[in-house]
């Protein structure tokens, strides 16, 4: 069969039903997911399907942005991993309202606002992005603005600066400023940088490149035991072994 479009919706409804009826259930269910109209057509067939169990492994790649789908739509879509490449209209403050676990932002140096990045850190400290585990920002500078941030610990080793901050929930995070020089990157390859895996572009980088690495550290979580009511405190204590009491 030649790989062309079969204008299914232009068929008379009777014929659409005839075709759908002869499909296997798997294809019928796939078809029903196309649109509300498709679903109602399948319902009209009154097939003996009592229930359907669907497992979805969704992965969006290379999403074109237009008037109907914006960065805000994608960012708030409860994603596990998000990678952004050279978005002109990216606002680092705006991503505070996004909902992702891991994010990599590839940004041109002239598009990076250090002030906005600083505000993002402050908002994270205030409790935004509770799901966030990793944020990588790839750009061409090693300057970072930490003004107004309560730095718990600051270290510098071989040109790499690290700052420890903590948010209102007691979750600690490490801001790392990494400097990588003259990297010959593999084609669309992945390169491990410390704990993190950073996707590099497929071009030869012959300039100093700075990575701002932001890792939330779950180890630093505190359980506010004293804020529990006395009854619950007692219940917790009763379940603890004697030598720990």
């Amino acid at each position: 069969m030649n790989g062309q479009i079969f204008p299914f919706l232009r068929l008379p409804t009777d014929l659409c039903s005839e075709i759908l009826k002869t499909m296997d259930y798997q294809e019928i269910i796939s078809y029903s997911l196309l649109s509300k109209k498709a679903l109602s057509m399948i319902k009209a067939l009154q097939l003996p399907i009592s229930y359907v169990q669907i497992r979805m492994d969704a992965q969006l790649t290379r999403v074109p942005l237009d008037e109907n789908i914006s960065l805000q739509h994608i960012g708030t879509a409860n994603l596990k991993d998000l990678q952004l490449y050279y978005q002109n209209d990216l606002n680092l403050v705006e991503i505070c309202s996004w909902n992702f676990e891991s994010c990599m932002i590839n940004i041109r140096i002239d598009q990076l606002s250090l002030r906005d990045l600083n505000r993002f850190f402050k908002m994270w400290v205030q409790g935004s992005n509770p799901k966030l585990k990793e944020l990588y920002i790839l750009c061409g500078t090693q300057i970072i603005l930490i003004k107004g941030l309560k730095i718990e610990e600051e270290t510098e080793e071989q040109g790499e600066k690290k700052f420890m901050i903590r948010n209102v929930r007691g979750i600690g995070a490490e801001i790392s400023v990494l400097v990588l020089k003259s990297i010959l990157t593999p084609l669309s390859g992945y390169v491990d940088v410390g704990k993190a895996t950073v996707l590099l572009s497929n071009r030869k980088l012959d300039f100093a490149l700075t990575y701002l690495l932001f890792l939330s550290n779950m180890d630093g979580q505190k359980f506010p035991f004293r804020r529990l009511s006395n009854d619950i405190c007692l219940k917790v204590l009763k379940t603890i072994d004697l030598h720990e009491m």
Binding site: I5, F6, P7, F8, L9, Y31, L34, S35, A38
Partner: peptide, 8 residues
């Protein structure tokens, strides 16, 4: 793939 095949 079905969306592509049927031009929906």
């Amino acid at each position: 793939e079905m969306r592509e095949l049927f031009g929906i």
